[in-house]
């Protein structure tokens, strides 16, 4: 989201930079270089996923996706995302609000903690739950006595996914909330609106695109997470295999086409995420430009 702000600043100042611009040769060389790089490292492998998936025809592609273990992997992935994303949206909004709108002791510590999952290897993220809830772990005996299963079952997968995707919503929201400032909310409060009403009608609308973007990123990662989930899953085909784990399983069983068929669904998810992201950026920058125009026209008067 910080990207939008800098982009708009750049747009606004671009005219004055004309004199110091590089020659067209440099410009086009750079464009060609980055274009080639993207094509070789991103576009061709991505296209290849679809080519491999459809290699043996559409019918086999569909039947590969209808295979019971695959269906169960897709279901599990959707369930995990359906639990993880709303929870992390709630946590993210709370955390971002606290950081952006209030001053308190330990604020920088909180910001660091929010970023922790980004800097911790996903394998560690999985292992900490095994150490806590595994049979030999701290709560292992107690959970076992009460017949509650966390590790090697759905709850463990959900926990690991929540850990890994925690920062996305908060990270997207904090800069936007900071940028919008507190004036509008203070105005609403002085005009007699309650806290919740202010949040709903003032705070939320001003950050809605950032929030949506965070939710989409969070969802993409929740569905695509491999490392942390692999540690806590137990790899039981048809029970605790998520889509990324299922892709690995199929590939290791020499079922290349089926593996790519499932991988193509994940790739599609990535493309949809990218599309929505672009749309949101475009909407946001348009709203931003309109707001700036309004301000400028008011100043000129």
């Amino acid at each position: 989201m910080a990207g939008y702000v800098s982009k708009n600043i750049r747009d606004a100042t671009s005219k004055s930079q004309r004199g110091t611009e590089e020659s067209p040769l440099v410009k086009w060389t750079l464009v060609a270089l980055s274009g080639t790089f993207l094509a070789v490292f991103l576009l061709i492998p991505l296209a290849n996923v679809f080519v491999q998936a459809l290699e043996k025809g559409w019918d086999l592609y569909v039947s590969a996706l209808k295979e019971p273990d695959t269906v169960s992997a897709i279901k599990l992935t959707v369930i995990v995302a359906a639990i993880t994303v709303p929870l992390n949206t709630l946590f993210g909004v709370c955390a971002a609000w606290a950081v952006a709108k209030f001053e308190f002791r330990g604020k920088s510590l909180l910001i660091t903690l929010i970023d922790l999952p980004f800097s911790v290897s996903p394998v560690v993220a999985g292992l900490i739950y095994v150490v806590m809830f595994g049979l030999q772990g701290y709560f292992g005996r107690w959970l076992d006595d009460h017949d509650i299963k966390i590790i090697f079952a759905v709850p463990g997968i959900v926990l690991a996914t929540i850990f890994v995707t925690f920062p996305f919503v908060a990270r997207e929201l904090i800069p936007v909330m900071q940028a919008t400032g507190r004036e509008q909310e203070e105005a609403a409060l002085t005009l007699g609106a309650g806290g919740l009403k202010t949040f709903w009608y003032v705070t939320l609308p001003s950050v809605k695109w950032g929030l949506l973007y965070g939710v989409i990123l969070c969802n993409a990662r929740a569905m695509g997470e491999f490392g942390a989930v692999s540690v806590v899953s137990g790899h039981i085909a048809g029970v605790t295999n998520t889509m990324p784990l299922h892709v690995e399983k199929l590939y290791n069983e020499y079922q290349g086409q089926a593996a790519f068929a499932v991988a193509s669904l994940l790739a599609l998810l990535a493309l949809v995420t990218l599309g929505v992201k672009t749309l949101l950026e475009w909407k946001q920058s348009r709203e931003f430009a309109r707001a700036q125009q309004n301000v400028e026209s008011m100043m000129n008067k």
Binding site: I79, D147, I148, K149, A153, V154, P155, V239
Partner: peptide, 8 residues
């Protein structure tokens, strides 16, 4: 059913 273990 989610937390009580799917296998049970």
């Amino acid at each position: 059913s989610l937390f009580g273990g799917l296998a049970a």
